[in-house]
Design a protein around this nucleic acid. Structure first.
Length: 422
RNA sequence: UCCGCGAUAGCUCAAUGGUAGAGCAGCUCCCUGUUAAGGAGUUGGUUCCAGGUUCGAGUCCUGGUCGCGGAG
């Protein structure tokens, strides 16, 4: 069948591969770094600059755009037109946000245990008392963290059909099902959309992890069916399934096998709360996925981790790290990360990174960017984000070229050797 | 010239006569499907000066210095 995305592989190096991912809005040279544009923008960067910064494609978020109002985006004619970006766009299904935000603020969360394993509903959090005022229309939650619930009032309740969650913005109640997430993603109109998955706590026990994974597989089938039934969307948008399994290798492999047998256009590998949980068995996971379909490693993006992902056969990567670090003064350089607000850079008139061709490095000095951070000028985070995004997109582009030229291992070794030196 | 008020960390200010603290700034670190221009930790004092009272003074008394008001 004619798919809305097609991966053309140009060369390989072991399991690493370089190619072109063809989408409805043009090609993506892979491996590629996907800039994170959660709320329809890469924080701090004008969409008209994406191309010159090496941003080929971005990933927006269903949860955030749904809560901020879908109507205006639909009225604008979809994300591409709304943002003024004509290149390929992905949308994450919102599964991650429903759970990470539903569980509470921050990432410590993670006290998921099962009180009643035969229950049909789960509330994320640790087992504790169950308040009667909560969710009166639902049966008693199986898992509940009173501290999180009372301090944040934000919960996600899972049942077989979907997730009921409260908005982190105003506390209002909402519900996502696989069908709903896909419908929203149809309205957003991204070139690549994701199946709705359940992202568990990093410390979830094996029993719950297995249960959540099986449910995610059932949701994957429903997501896929919903998408295939929409003739127009199915023609222009590709759908990726998301591999789960938490930190359990065998579950991960089982998940990859199960999803790989479904007719997705590509695959996302999720649940990467901790990179140790996934990077070590990435090659085994990828081995279970169809070789001719694209693989996206969700949320992974430090340079050293991207090398691992590429080596294992992943084609695309997204990560908040260049923009989040950039906003907060962390600068990527060939010799490692640097904290530009630190006093040692106040009269350093060199570029952020020697030899960098980004607009910031071409036109400005460390001293200037340092000054902007010290004076809390918004241009500081902008210039830093511009540099960091350029750094990562070009690092991955260099990796790609190395694979094409047959010198991936050498490139990896020399880069990491230099990157470690500070 | 007189009267009043004030002087404590880089800044703005706390501290019944009993171990001088806070916020901000500074410094260092952290951020991996963004609730993040965010978060954590932490360094800073001859308490304006000189005397006095007291077991003990940032605090009370005396005299200065500087600043801000008011009167003349």
């Amino acid at each position: 069948m004619e798919r809305p995305v097609r991966l053309e592989i140009l060369n390989t190096s072991g399991t690493a591969r370089a190619g072109v991912l063809h989408t409805s809005h043009g090609p993506i040279n892979t491996p590629a770094f996907v800039a994170v544009a959660t709320k329809a923008n890469v924080k701090g960067i004008d969409p008209t600059q994406y191309t010159q910064l090496g941003i080929q494609t971005i990933i927006a978020n269903t949860y955030h755009l749904y809560l901020s109002g879908l109507e205006v985006i639909a009225k604008a004619g979809g994300l591409h037109k709304f943002m003024g970006f004509a290149g390929p766009i992905m949308t994450d299904s919102g599964g991650f946000q429903v759970f990470s935000l539903g569980e509470g603020y921050g990432k410590k969360v993670s006290k998921v245990e099962v009180l009643q394993k035969d229950s049909s509903q789960k509330v994320l959090g640790s087992p504790s008392a169950q308040p009667e005022h909560f969710a009166p229309n639902l049966s008693a939650p199986a898992v509940y963290d009173e501290e999180l619930a009372t301090s944040h009032g934000k919960l996600a309740i899972v049942d077989e059909d979907g997730v009921t969650f409260t908005s982190h913005i105003d506390g209002s109640m909402h519900r996502f099902t696989p069908e709903r997430s896909i419908e929203i993603q149809h309205q957003l109109g991204a070139d690549i959309i994701y199946a709705f998955d359940e992202c568990t706590s990093p410390t979830a026990d094996r029993e719950y992890q297995k249960e959540a994974m099986d449910r995610t597989h059932r949701w994957a089938k429903r997501s896929l069916a919903t998408h295939r039934q929409n003739i127009d969307s199915n023609k222009s948008q590709a759908i990726y399934g998301i591999v789960q399994g938490g930190r359990f290798s065998d579950l991960r492999i089982e998940s990859a096998k199960e999803l790989g047998s479904m007719d997705f256009d590509g695959y996302g590998i999720g649940g990467s709360f901790s990179k140790e949980d996934i990077l070590g068995i990435l090659d085994q996971v990828n081995a279970e996925l169809p070789a001719d379909k694209p693989r996206h490693l969700l949320g992974i993006g430090e340079p050293e981790d991207i090398f691992i992902g590429v080596a294992a056969g992943c084609d695309t990567f997204d990560c908040v790290v260049p923009t989040r670090n950039g906003r907060n003064g962390g600068i990527y350089t060939k010799h490692g990360k640097v904290q530009i607000p630190n006093v040692q850079y106040q009269d350093d008139f060199g570029p952020l990174d020697h030899g960098c061709g980004c607009p910031t490095c071409t036109n400005h000095t460390r001293a200037y960017v340092h000054h902007l951070f010290r004076t809390h000028e918004m241009l500081g985070p902008i210039l830093a984000s511009v540099h960091n995004v350029y750094f990562l997109t070009h690092l991955v582009a260099d990796i790609r070229q190395a694979i094409i030229d047959g010198r991936f291992d050498e490139f990896r070794t020399s880069f990491l050797q230099q990157y470690k030196v500070r």
